[in-house]
Amino acid sequence: MSAVRLMEAAIRLSHRGLGRTAPNPNVGCLIVKDGMVIARGWTQPGGRPHAEAVALEIAGEAARGAELYVSLEPCAHVSARGPACADLVAASGVSAVHIAVLDPDPRTTGQGAARLRDAGIVVTVGTGEAMARAAMAGFFLRMERGRPRITLKLAMSIDGRVSMPGGESQWITGPEARAHVHLQRALADVILVGRGTLEADDPSLDVRLPGLQDRSPRPAVLSATLDAIPASAKLAARDPLLLASVDDLCGLTVNDVFVEGGPATASTLLAADLVDRMLVYRAPIVIGDGAPGAGRIGLERLSDAHGRWRLDETRTFGNDRLEVYARTR
């Protein structure tokens, strides 16, 4: 198997940690010897142990002379929670380390790779870099912009309405699209709504897919006027966060926030230019005089709206269509 294919396999392993490793990145690792994969690892829930530590423990002495493929540069800093992965890898006896992308964390950037080279290990960097960055998009954005990556989900009709005039919104999309939303929840660290959604819908904000129930992200409510989350709320038993402002949201030390709030929350985040990705689930229905997906977001001219969003992906779920947009910066 080629180095490219092996790195792609390591990166795919990293997806198993999405939404569970913050504030650490989700990393995947393979150890290969004589053309055979002898160990696999990915960052565990809570961020420790790291992917390399998991794989090396599985490989044991068989790691000597093997090659290690990892989606992110092995860390170079010692933590109270565990040793530096660069030191573990250097001591393991592997002959070569293939790194998809260097760690943007200033405590490691370049230092992990340098430490491995100093130990006489052949190090290559860059194979699968784009794929690795995409797999750790939330972590990279947090390192570069100092806040979590924020994904806004909207379920709307053809004419852009998210509810009936009286507020009824369950359900605009069909079961296939709703199942995909639950999968997206399972990949986030935090799921956010506003006070209006909390009081109108009393949402559970959990993951209700067979086998993934334990992947429910931590719930959060964004409200400048709410003093406390009611104990009677469905999400109250899951240690919810109460955020008074977008500054509180930006201060979270997590990688990915998934927003399912109503038009007011969507408007607040769009106006603050904090939405990095939008998932728009569009149902083949026309509602007419209902609530729009977002209210005023501060644009003064139509020309200001152009060039901000790039359509990255479209998919079909039953009768519904998903459009994935990325903020161009």
Rank of each mutant, 00 (worst) to 15 (best):
R315E: 12
E52Y: 11
A271R: 15
S92V: 02
P210R: 13
A188C: 03
A55S: 04
G60V: 06
T225K: 13
R215P: 02
P45V: 12
P74K: 07
G290R: 06
A224P: 05
A233S: 15
I58H: 07
R16M: 09
D87L: 13
L6A: 06
A53R: 15
D201G: 05
S92H: 10
S204W: 12
A220H: 11
P230G: 06
N255L: 08
S92T: 08
A283K: 10
A63P: 07
F258I: 01
L209G: 00
A135I: 04
D320V: 03
L222V: 09
D103T: 05
P219K: 10
I229L: 07
A179N: 12
Q44N: 06
S92R: 12
R149V: 00
A283C: 05
S157T: 07
R178M: 07
L192D: 01
A137K: 14
V280P: 06
V207M: 06
C250L: 09
R147T: 04
V4A: 14
L18A: 08
T253W: 04
D247L: 05
A155N: 08
L311S: 06
T127I: 14
R282F: 00
F258H: 15
G41M: 12
P49G: 08
G112L: 10
P284N: 01
R315D: 09
A155K: 01
I31D: 03
M36G: 00
D256K: 09
L18S: 04
H180R: 15
G138E: 09
A53V: 10
F317N: 01
D118E: 15
P83K: 14
T316Y: 00
A155G: 04
